[in-house]
Amino acid sequence: MARRPLGQLEAEVLAALAGLGGTASTAELVARLDGDPAYTTVNTILHRLHEKKLVTRVRTGRYYRYRLAVDESELVAGRMHDHLRHASDPAGVLSRFARSLGAEEARKLREFLDPPKDGGG
C-alpha cells in the first residue's frame, strides 16, 4: 500500500470530521478513512491538529472525542490560495484545476464567479 503524505492525511481527517458534523473518536475516524490507516497514525494526526487548534477535544472515559474547530471550506480555500500564491504559473494551475472539475462542480464555480443579476443593482 502506498503511503500518503502527512498533509494529505491531515486533510482527510479534517474532512471526515466535517462530514460527521459532530464529535468523533479516533476509532470512528479510522473507520471512515480510506486505505486503512493505523489507529496510532490517526491518533498522532489528531494530536497535531489539536496543537494547531484545528480541532477541539473532550475526554470521554479513557479516550478523547474530537470536533472540528474551524470552518472546513475556509481552511481548504486558504490552502488552495497558498498553493496558487507559490505557483510559478498561477494561471496554468487555475486552468488545469478548472478543466479537472466535474460538470456539477464547474456549474457551481460559474455560479460563484458570475452570480445572476437580480435587477436590484
Rank of each mutant, 00 (worst) to 15 (best):
A38D: 13
T60K: 05
A24V: 07
L68N: 06
S25Y: 00
L49N: 02
R4H: 03
R67V: 12
D34F: 03
A15T: 13
A18M: 01
A27W: 04
H50E: 10
R65Q: 15
Q8C: 07
V30Q: 04
A103H: 09
G120V: 14
E28W: 00
G102L: 12
R3T: 14
L84F: 08
R32Y: 11
L17E: 10
S88L: 05
P115E: 01
R85L: 13
A31E: 14
G21R: 06
R107W: 02
L49W: 01
G21Y: 12
T40D: 07
L6W: 15
A106F: 15
P5F: 06
L14D: 04
D114R: 11
R59G: 05
R79P: 00
E28T: 07
L29Q: 02
A15P: 02
D36L: 15
G92N: 07
T41N: 08
H47Y: 14
L49F: 01
R32L: 13
R62C: 10
G121M: 00
L75D: 05
S100Q: 03
V93I: 05
A103Y: 12
G61S: 08
R3Y: 15
K108M: 08
F112L: 15
T56Y: 01
A91Q: 10
E72M: 13
A18Y: 04
R62H: 09
V42I: 05
R48F: 08
S95M: 08
R107C: 08
T26L: 00
E104R: 15
E10Q: 10
S25A: 12
E74V: 15
Q8V: 13
L54G: 02
R62L: 14
L46M: 13
Y66P: 01
P116Q: 11
V13W: 00
P116W: 00
T26Y: 01
P115T: 02
M1K: 08
E105S: 09
D118E: 11
R4T: 09
A15F: 01
A11C: 05
E12S: 08
R3G: 14
A27M: 11
T41F: 01
P90C: 09
I45Q: 12
V30L: 01
A91G: 02
S88M: 06
L46Y: 13
R107L: 12
R57S: 14
G7F: 04
P115Y: 04
P116E: 14
G7A: 15
K117V: 01
H50Y: 02
H81G: 05
N43H: 11
R85M: 13
A106L: 13
